[in-house]
Each structure stands twice: as structure tokens, then as C-alpha cells.
Amino acid sequence: MSLVLQGVASGVVTGCVYALVALSLVIVYKATDVVNFAGGELVMIGAYLGLLLLLWFQLPYIAMFALVPVAVFAVGALFDRITLRKVGGRALAKHVDLVSFVVATIGLSYLLKGAVRVVPFTEEVRRLPPLFSGPPVFIGDVVLQRQDLAIIAVTTMIMLALWLFFERTLLGKALRATSQNARAAALVGVPVSAMRMAVWGLASAIAGIAGVLLAPKLLMTPDMGAVVMLAFAAAIIGGFSSLPGCVVGGIALGVIQNLVGIFISPQAIAVTPFFVIMLVLLFRPEGLFGESLALKKV
């Protein structure tokens, strides 16, 4: 029993990271209809930038934690500004070819991986120091590392902030408006291409933070962006359009993975996300939180 509880608790922790990356994917998708295949690499460069700032520049952890999202924001925003806007031509053209956007994100993913590989610093496998070190915390029979608690706390704060931003601020509403109807948004005078850039920046910053949170828990390699598959699964559980859906999807996936590891076999963990994706797409393609497909057409 305590094994199961422990599995659930650490599943929630990893699930929080999946949820953050899923949020990053879904925010971009909702705003621009582009599936961002570089989402995982944004996580990865977030982690490496963190490492660079801590070890190379000897910055304190807090400063690193504040700078990484800013830097990754810039990467995402510049990618949109330099690449996507060129690929898309005029933002208001009626038929933008989504395939070329998606291919551009694949290009970005290789570019980022390549850029990290050429830095000599990354040849050694490294580990990012945790946000808080110290003895683990016991909650009943469940043991959590301090880093785990930090992950849960930071994730909760980001989610609250996102919720407030999208529901309560005019800028947040303008971003939602742009994603729901770009034409109408342009007509009321919302600068649509600046909004897209902001969305890319915001989503990238979230992925970067996820990288900083995740890196202490795994060995860092330029391929750690593979975590994006789990984020895709989480987002699909949530219907790929709902932000709360990402959170629930991410946490559910983290927990399911651990339970599969305990009850079925540790080898089965790797296929779990794919299995979950297939099940959701078969039985509830709109996800657990997605709006019914008919309503989305409006």
C-alpha cells in the first residue's frame, strides 16, 4: 500500500513537469494552430541555460531561476519573429500552410540540439543542482525530495498566474481573442503578429522553467527533450485545447506511469504514454476536457 502511495506521490511530481510542457504546447497550438515539435528542445535549453548560469557565471539560484524564462522567452519570440512570420507571409492571409510551420518547428528542434551539442561544456553528462537541497520530507509513509516539493509549488504558482493572466487581464483576453478569431482581433486593432510573438515567448518560457525543474531529477543530455512525448500525451488527455486539461492530463499520466511500473512491469512504463494516446484518441478524441468538436467549429 505504501508503495502505491509513494508511486502516486512521485507520479504527481513528474506529472507536474509534463503538465507544464503540455501547457506550453497547447498555448502555442491554440493561438497559432501550430504543433510545436521543438517544445522538448525548449525544455532542454532551459535546463542547459540554467546550468550555464549556475556553473559558468556563478549566479545564485534565484537569479538563474529568473533569467532562464526570460532567455527562453526570447528564443521562442525570435523564432516566431524571424522564421514563422517569414514562412507565413502576411499573418492575415486566409490559407496559411500549417505544414510549413510545423516543419519549421522541427527545424528549430534540430537547431537547438545542435547548438547545445557544439558547446564543449555539454559533452560530460551533468546534473543541475536542485532548487532546495536537504533531507527528504516525510508525509506519512511517503517520502518526497525537497526538489519535488519545489516542483509542485512552482507548477502551482505558474498555473495560478496563467489562469489570472488569461481570465483577468485585458492582454490575456486579447491573446485568447487572437487565438479564437485572428481576423476579428485584427479588426478591433489588436496587433495580431505581436500577439503571436508574445504567445511563442510565453509558451517557450514555461517550457524553459520546466527544464530547470526537471533537470535535477534526470541526467542532462541534449536529447532530454524527448520528454515532449509525455507532454503530448498529457495534452491529448486534456483535449489539446484546455489548460486545466493539461494539468489533469499531466498529473494523471505521471501517476499512471508509476502505477504501471508497480503493477505491470517497469519495462511497460516507456510505452504507457503511447498507449494512453491511442486509448484517448479511440474512445474520446476530444479529450477529457476538450470542447465537443461541433462546438469548436463556431
Binding site: A174, Q180, N181, V188
Partner: peptide, 15 residues
């Protein structure tokens, strides 16, 4: 050409 997912009032405020 409205913002279907936003409230009526939010639509107006975006105007």
C-alpha cells in the same frame, strides 16, 4: 466575427 469563447462583456471590452 466574434470571439466565441469569451463572454459578451469581454468581447465588448476588447473593442
Amino acid at each position: 466575427e466574434i470571439f466565441p469563447g469569451l463572454s459578451t462583456q469581454d468581447n465588448l471590452e476588447l473593442g
